[in-house]
Design a binder for these strands. Structure first.
Length: 907
RNA sequence: GCCCGGAUGGCGGAAUGGUAUACGCAUUCGACUUAAAAUCGAAUUUCCGAAAGGGAGUGUGGGUUCGAGUCCCACUCCGGGCACCA
């Protein structure tokens, strides 16, 4: 039933149809259906206090268009939404106001939901999820238990930002210019006990399986770089002081081992203390202290000046027995490789810089090409002996001679490189051939690598290894507002007791940590005891010790725990009867925001299931999302973490496919009218609410899609949006008369012109194809062209008008429903099958043939399709515009592309 | 420094190797109106020209081709991401 307004009153029409859809459950997806499925997913939002910004509806409109189109095409469409609602801002708000983060979060959700509903998206609201709902995070905790059980979770000391003044741990974003964001107090790095997930165990598969997904190449490449696989060798260097054992290094260039003139270990390396000699101790201690205060970022910021300090100790190069000094420098990171390197200054930029700064020897061991030598050493002057006579040449001359006239000069060229390597303009880091390397001499780099690795391996001082930049995932936060870990810390004896009862659910190796000489054992709650809810706390302020506010909730924290059932009573109560009760302390860390978003796409399949995170039937029917749309800022972290969890679930046999997101698309950022990123401080933020009030959501949706290609970054324009509104007004006016009745030009007795009919069928074809490929901006152009044709036409057949509305419906669903109803069509436009085009109507009998002379457009003529070349050439030669260009010329060649061009090449 | 994008009218942008600038915005003129808005019609890459017409033209320079915005090579500028990863 249509509204009663006479003009295009979107403020009345839009809520009316939103209400209609809601009451009819128009967008409900069925888990049991004979229809083919289509799962289209948005990256669900974090419900911030600021409300929706214009970037949200951009991606959401794109998926909504596809969802509505696919429904019309006969698919059972799953198009869900929910809330990624754990997070730092809610916690900060709670600290400030003292109110529970849940209440603030719920307020924000209400606001987000109102805004999203006002945009008319066809979400299945029955499947709404909220990551902070215990019914949801019960399964987040369950997945953690699976990881834990498989040995993929462990506890380790990791550095975090610590603010002594605020007595709290800070997130990276809470640290601004080395000071706390709140209060500008100094901060330092401090090691704290953290949960870590062993994502590195999946590095190889995370890399290899990228080939199976339909993702933007740039995103794949970013993930590849992040995983950062490199092949090389681990090599053991004997230490001069044999009592200290050996030093293990990682290198991607074992072939340069003969060029190793010193070694560097990270300041955090476990051997630092033992290696440092008495004379150097003071300097080393000072240096370690200085670099401990630096973040990785600061270490890299100081890139220009390499810093470091000599340990006083030496190692022995395993291939030539040379005594090489061991330095300590923070350009070597403990987190990559072995935290120690062999420095080859002749063939590595950083090592070279360091060697220059500390006057360490530089030994060339890889031959560059003569070309490279000429380019980088041209400025040198060299002595050259020819027939016993000495000449002074420029190095460029020597290279020139060696590479053209006199091959015998080549050794001299390399001799110069060898002796004066530090005088060359750049460091040779590419592949070449070995030199000054004993038995390796002359071997190309790749062969030399293999040869030396093999020989080291035989001697037991080296082996081939693969290294990844990817590091294990720091998975805990010292915060209140996150999923609690379903872990209780117990004594060794109690853990042993638990093991006899629940052995199968414990990891192969117990997870432990040592504190004041006591080893604590991590005992998981049984899955039946989930969810472990957050307790109410007195204060959201941090505990002051670095632990989360949960550490202050003694009654929740210190418990008697039943190892069999996971039941708990406060430790202040008497110990309950029975053997299974042990004394424990709960884990006070909570999970990071990523946890909830790592698997939410699976919960949508079966969101109310109380027995499993989703039923096997739902998992099988829906599978992975067919399309996932979201910002490129998630190209690495979210998308890599989710892939990791998914693979673990796949290994468990609970999800049927190895990759979670088959097809991925990133929408571009919408900039402010000034072409800058939208931000509060610039005052260029556009709110969807304002536009919905002034122009309506149909206009907003159309405009967002018309701005430009979905993936492009594009500026907002208030003037352009008027054009979209005019377009909808025009559609309205062509179909509805001033009094609100149907425009008399829409007449059942009117037959459309052949041109209009043809255009209609062309448009059906184009719009359908363009929706499939997410080319919405040009699809809308096509709709405008059709609307313009309808406008020009004196009459229009109702069937044509209805088809136009159907094509418009995915983009601007409210006005489409309204006009559909007013034209007397039955049911919802959403229920009508997508119009099919008639290929016969697309057949053309005449085309415009362009005449070119020497590739230049000189004239054109409408000709029948299938005109042969001879006839076409004849027409061209008679064309008055072409004739002058042919006069007095001989035709050398004719290129004829039927239906397109006839190019006459003349001399 | 490295990696990835991009550069087309006054603006957002469109163009399977085949008429460059579709569609929209803006601007100008005209119609309607007492007037304005809205709407409708027309014009709008640039240079020469009254016009007809012609020349140039997709960041720069080269190349391939009958024909290049599109393919190849070199470069400039802009944007984004990553960054001492051995």
């Amino acid at each position: 039933m249509a509204t009663s307004c006479t003009d295009y009153n979107f403020l009345q029409i839009e809520p009316h149809w939103q209400n209609f859809w809601e009451q009819n459950g128009a967008f409900r997806a069925e888990n049991i259906s004979s229809k083919p499925k289509f799962y289209v997913l948005d990256m669900f939002p974090y419900p911030s206090g600021a409300g929706l910004h214009i970037g949200h509806p951009e991606g959401y409109t794109a998926t909504d268009i596809l969802a509505r189109y696919k429904r019309a095409k006969g698919f059972n469409v799953l198009h869900p939404i929910g809330w990624d609602a754990f997070g730092l801002p809610a916690e900060q708000h709670a600290v400030k106001t003292g109110t529970h983060p849940a209440s603030n979060t719920q307020n924000n959700i209400v606001n987000f939901k109102r805004q999203i509903k006002a945009l008319g998206f066809s979400y299945d609201w029955d499947r709404e999820i909220d990551t902070t709902d215990p019914k949801y995070f019960r399964w987040t905790q369950w997945i953690f238990l699976q990881l834990f059980q498989r040995g993929l979770a462990y506890v380790d000391e990791r550095p975090v930002w610590w603010c002594p003044e605020l007595r709290t741990v800070l997130a990276n974003e809470e640290v601004v210019d080395g000071k706390s964001e709140v209060g500008s107090f100094p901060v330092e790095r401090k090691n704290l006990r953290q949960w870590v997930l062993r994502i590195t165990a999946y590095a190889e598969r995370l890399l290899a399986d990228l080939k199976d997904v339909d993702w933007p190449d740039s995103t794949k490449r970013m993930q590849e770089a992040w995983i950062g696989r490199s092949e090389g060798a681990e090599i053991l260097f004997d230490l001069e002081n044999k009592a200290l054992g050996q030093l293990k290094i990682f290198t991607t260039r074992p072939d340069t081992l003969f060029g190793c003139t010193y070694m560097v270990i990270a300041p955090e390396h476990s051997l630092v203390e033992a290696l440092t000699t008495v004379d150097n101790k003071a300097a080393v201690d000072a240096y370690r202290k200085k670099s401990a205060g630096k973040s990785d970022l600061e270490r890299t910021d100081l890139a220009k000046d390499k810093s470091g300090v000599f340990s006083g100790a030496y190692a022995i190069n395993p291939v030539n027995g040379h005594r090489v000094p061991i330095w300590i420098a923070d350009y070597v990171l403990m987190g990559y490789g072995t935290g120690a390197i062999m420095a080859v200054p002749a063939h590595d930029d950083r090592d070279f810089e360091f060697a220059l700064q500390f006057r360490l020897p530089i030994q060339a061991v890889v031959k560059p090409s003569l070309e490279w030598l000429g380019k980088n050493g041209a400025h040198l002057e060299v002595e050259v002996k020819i027939d016993g006579k000495s000449h002074t040449w420029t190095y460029a001359e020597l290279i020139e001679a060696a590479s053209t006239r006199d091959k015998t000069l080549e050794p001299r060229a390399y001799e110069v490189f060898s002796q004066r390597v530090s005088e060359f303009k750049s460091v040779f880091t590419d592949l070449g051939a070995a030199m000054n390397s004993g038995a390796l001499d002359g071997l190309p780099t790749l062969e030399a690598k293999g040869r030396i690795t093999e020989s080291l391996e035989k001697r037991g001082v080296g082996k081939k290894t693969i290294n990844y930049k990817l590091r294990d995932w720091l998975f805990s936060r010292q915060r209140y507002w996150g999923e609690p870990f379903p872990i209780v810390w117990v004594s060794e004896a109690d853990y042993a007791k638990a093991k006899t009862i629940r052995g199968a659910t414990l990891p192969p190796q117990a997870v432990t940590f040592k504190e004041s000489g006591v080893t604590h054992y991590a005992l998981p709650l049984p899955a039946t005891a989930l969810p472990l809810a957050l307790p109410d706390v007195q204060s959201y302020l941090p505990s002051g010790t670095g632990e989360s506010p949960l550490a202050n909730e003694t009654a929740w924290l210190e418990i008697w725990c039943n190892v069999e059932t996971g039941a708990a009573v406060s430790a202040s109560s008497p110990r309950p009867a029975g053997d299974a009760w042990v004394r424990g302390r709960r884990e006070t860390n909570t999970m990071p925001q990523w946890a909830g978003s790592c698997w939410y796409y699976l919960r949508f399949l079966d969101p109310k299931n109380a027995d499993a995170f989703a039923s096997p039937e739902a998992l099988k029917y829906w599978g992975a999302p067919d399309l996932y749309v979201g910002g490129a800022e998630h190209a690495v972290l979210h998308l890599l973490y989710a892939r990791f969890w998914h693979k673990v679930l796949f290994d468990l046999g609970v999800v049927p496919q190895a990759e979670p997101f088959t097809k991925l698309f990133h929408q571009g950022i919408i900039l402010g009218e000034d072409g800058e990123k939208m931000s509060k401080s610039r005052g260029n933020v556009v709110s969807p609410d304002t536009i919905i009030q002034s122009h309506g959501t149909d206009t907003l949706r159309l405009y967002l899609m018309f701005l430009g290609p979905l993936e492009a970054m594009k500026p907002w324009s208030m003037q352009q949006i008027e054009g979209m509104h005019r377009f909808l007004q025009k559609v309205w006016r062509e179909l509805i008369a001033a009094d609100g009745s149907v425009n008399p030009k829409v007449s059942a007795t009117a037959a459309d012109s052949a041109e209009l009919t043809k255009l209609l069928h062309e448009t059906i074809k184009k719009v359908g194809e363009k929706i499939e490929t997410l080319q919405f901006n040009t699809a809308i152009s096509d709709l405008m062209v059709l609307a313009n044709a309808v406008q020009k036409s004196p009459t229009v057949n109702p069937a044509t008008a209805l088809t136009l509305l159907q094509l418009l419906a995915p983009f601007a669903p409210h006005i489409a429903e309204e006009l559909w109803a007013r034209l007397g069509a039955t049911g919802s436009i959403m229920a009508a099958p997508w119009p099919a085009y008639d290929a016969a109507k697309l057949v053309i009998t005449e085309v415009k043939l362009v005449f070119q002379v020497n590739g230049k457009h000189r004239g054109d003529q409408v000709v029948p399709v299938g005109l042969n070349e001879e006839a076409a050439l004849q027409l061209a030669r008679e064309n008055p515009k072409v004739v002058p260009h042919l006069e007095g010329k001989t035709i050398k060649r004719v290129i004829y592309v039927p239906g397109r061009i006839l190019n006459i090449v003349v001399a």
